[in-house]
Design a protein around this nucleic acid. Structure first.
Lengths: 338, 338
DNA sequence: TTGTAAGCGTTATCAG
DNA sequence: CTGATAACGCTTACAA
């Protein structure tokens, strides 16, 4: 049988209330004598006491649970993010409840519902489609006041968020390639209108403008995958004279680009410099190792978790509703492909 | 204010007990009249009732939480495994509580303690060092009866387990290379005595014996990383005549092997066929795409979760203690490097 | 078929 | 500084 406060109370010859006081008021010497405090603490340790969180939660209406709903768990992106989240949650004595939407809107909703069922104190939405309506989420019982959106900016949803600055990323990449001094530079953009991708393009445009590189720089629509990168590069190579530089909208595309360049008998980076975006783990295993715009995954997780914790605290204090929007900076990682 | 059973009871003009009965006995028409049943159900839906799991857990002593303690979350291996776990847990109405040991023994212990604090119904130990004593774990309040070890075989710890058959993996790889008909075949083994690695070597030896390939096959100790693979391959190339085949103890090593082969001016696979082990996601992005022994990650997760669920059921029924040991088969994935 | 009542282990309020 | 005592929302004998 598990030891409860009552048991300790009996053995210590005090009341359960006192035991509760000792075991909770951390380091606060107030309102309980040194002597009883120490006796209770000793007893608790000796008897292997473990607080019953159900009871505590039932009473206090707090679960010390933070839900994380991942849009797509197979995305290797997530590992580091989760690590970051877990790290701070652990410090703050929260537990992490994980759920996946498996890239399905419907399942996403179900996950949120589950979070509200277990009464998670806060929820982190990790990736996913950009369009979430206020009603969709709130109707499920999830409180936007303790909701953190990660990497997405839901429209009209009144929640906090953490994102990385894709505009800056695009800018840094383009700037770097411009300074590299190649005769022609091509940015391979995504066809679909994803917000991230639009931002990256925006950053690229900004750099072009700022450096007056309009005549050396061109932008081509392709798509976000290896194959798209491959075919678009074949086209590019048939029309453009090396040495040049190609900036892929993400690492997968860059992978296709590199393959196409090598298959056509040209060399990376001598003839064609290639730059990616994301810094997937595979980036540093490619040949040549891929230079790319690094997304701060760990920090993304850390920031998101710090945010929820702050939001939860705020809510518990009954303070006015607040909202934070944190944006993290990507950075350039130069390896061998440029 | 959240609606409780009491609220429903009042509005329905019945007692809370009846509401409880309706809302729990799933589909069981027993012991409550059709009429009240329907009234209560309708009311519950209308009022947006969500069961308070704390109260339920406090009463029933079940949390419907399954803890997953990951030895190292940055390992990209984990994404798929987690997906598998989550998938079945979700079906069975459990929630997944995630923790990381960050590759530290001490933190691992703390994680387990946390799991016992939140009273997880079951725990899955995902990877990590092999040597866990019975006492270490049990002392923390984790019940070995509902513990599943994944990918590790703790000594003297009376728990269930799921592993992949590394012996078979080694065998399949070696067999394949032998049949390939290269003049000489080298297995690059790990220096350290990890159980997995020993098993792989065992499998390799078995294949050699079975096919009488002793004269064509040799085994060299190196280590589990890219650099180790690289240097050992330089050695090999200076002593062995191509065409040959090299089997790395894992994909990272194989990566180093490929690099060394290419750097020495030889071709993969024409001069040197290279086979890996693990099937990391990067394997299919290498050039040439790496042939390797695939570990069934998703299934590993699925099996582990199915196991805990079964163990928990068993425990709840008060049945005698059981133990399951499942072993999954790896498979050969042939791509371009062989 | 239904209601009553007694907890489950904590915490908060109010006296002492 | 400490002790009763009453919740928190739910389940489960036991009665009716």
């Amino acid at each position: 049988m598990k030891t409860t406060m009552k048991h300790i109370a009996m053995r210590a010859g005090v009341s359960a209330a006192t035991v509760s006081r000792v075991l909770n008021d951390k380091a606060t010497a107030i309102s309980v004598s040194r002597k009883t405090r120490e006796k209770v603490q000793a007893l608790a340790r000796e008897m292997g006491y473990r607080p019953n969180l159900f009871a505590k939660s039932l009473r206090t209406n707090r679960s010390f649970l933070v839900g994380v709903v991942a849009w797509d768990l197979s995305d290797p992106f997530n590992g580091e993010v989760l690590r970051g989240i877990e790290q701070v949650l652990d410090e703050e004595d929260y537990s992490l409840l994980l759920n996946t939407a498996e890239a399905s809107r419907q399942r996403m909703l179900r996950c949120l519902e589950k979070m509200s069922n277990v009464r998670a104190d806060g929820v982190i939405l990790m990736g996913g489609p950009e369009t979430w309506g206020e009603k969709e989420i709130v109707g499920l019982g999830v409180d936007p006041q303790t909701l953190v959106l990660m990497g997405i900016r839901a429209q009209g949803l009144d929640a906090s968020s953490v994102i990385v600055d894709n505009v800056l990323g695009g800018f840094l990449g383009a700037e770097y390639l411009i300074k590299l001094g190649r005769r022609s530079i091509i940015y391979v953009a995504g066809k679909e209108k994803e917000l991230d991708m639009e931002d990256r393009l925006l950053g690229v445009r900004k750099a072009i403008g700022q450096y007056g590189a309009e005549n050396r720089f061109s932008i081509i629509d392709a798509g976000p995958g290896e194959n798209e990168g491959y075919t678009v590069t074949q086209e590019i190579l048939s029309k453009t004279q090396s040495p040049m530089a190609i900036f892929g909208l993400n690492d997968m595309t860059a992978l296709g680009i590199i393959r196409a360049v090598k298959d056509s008998g040209l060399r990376v980076p001598q003839d064609v410099a290639v730059l990616g975006f994301d810094d997937l783990s595979m980036a540093s295993y490619l040949e040549p190792r891929l230079s790319t715009v690094h997304q701060p995954r760990l920090e993304l997780g850390i920031s998101a978790a710090e945010l929820v914790v702050r939001l939860i605290d705020n809510k518990c204090k009954g303070a006015a509703k607040v909202q934070f929007h944190k944006v993290l900076n990507p950075s350039l990682v130069i390896r061998e492909s440029t």
